[in-house]
């Protein structure tokens, strides 16, 4: 369970938001909304522990994330604006590396199955630099499927994705929520997950 108490964040001199409170339990979906420059990405990066908040506290299972430190990182998957995949490696190698970095090794067959589900059939061993933007994003999203972490923090996950990939993404989020996971995301595109209540947080 994630709990945010009286959170305030700033970038440089500018205060972005303050007095932010929310609590998310397993199976809940939160969309962070707001105009450009309102601090959506800053909020998500703060929740990942990259940025120290100005005031307030973030708690995971009742303990401050500063206290949990590296134990907290085992519970989150973060997908940022950047795909975090290496151009010189293939999608398969990228997936194996990111799986290992998240704390567990994965067999080739399992990794290939995940990449095929993401629509990369036949391109698993191509260097990623030969793939289109949309396929690269799909290769990056494959990370969500191999990770067992309960908290997904997704910053604009739908960028560069086509209609079928958006559908797949909705399906993946739905599955994750049914497995008692938590998803926090930002998007400027409509994203509808069947069977889940969408909570909205607007930064203004």
């Amino acid at each position: 369970m994630l709990e945010v108490k009286e959170l305030a964040c700033a970038r440089g001199e500018q205060k972005l938001f303050s007095d932010l409170n929310f609590r998310l339990a397993g199976g809940e979906l939160l969309q962070v909304q707001g105009e450009n420059g309102r601090g959506k990405t800053t909020l998500l990066r703060t929740l990942c522990g990259f940025i120290q908040p100005l005031e307030g506290e973030i708690q995971w299972q009742g303990k401050s994330i500063n206290e949990l430190d590296e134990d907290y990182f085992a519970n989150i998957v973060y997908l940022g604006h950047l795909n975090a995949i290496k151009d010189d490696l293939s999608a398969l190698e990228n997936l194996r590396v990111s799986s290992a970095l998240s704390g567990s090794t994965i067999s080739d067959s399992a990794a290939i199955a995940v990449l095929r589900r993401m629509g990369l059939r036949g391109r698993e061993t191509f260097p990623v630099k030969l793939l289109s933007q949309g396929l690269r994003r799909r290769a990056a999203l494959a990370r969500l499927l191999i990770n067992k972490a309960p908290l997904w923090i997704l910053d604009e996950p739908l960028t560069a994705l086509d209609v079928s990939a958006v559908g797949l993404m909705q399906e993946m989020i739905g599955e994750h929520l049914r497995n008692n996971g938590i998803v926090i995301f930002t998007t400027h595109q409509p994203l509808e997950v069947s069977g889940a209540v969408l909570r909205r947080l607007t930064l203004s």
């Binding site: 990942c48 590296e70 134990d71 990182f73 973060y78 975090a84 970095l101 998240s102 704390g103």
Partner: peptide, 8 residues
């Protein structure tokens, strides 16, 4: 960024 999230 992903490396900073390494749990070990």
């Amino acid at each position: 960024e992903q490396m900073l999230l390494v749990p070990q």
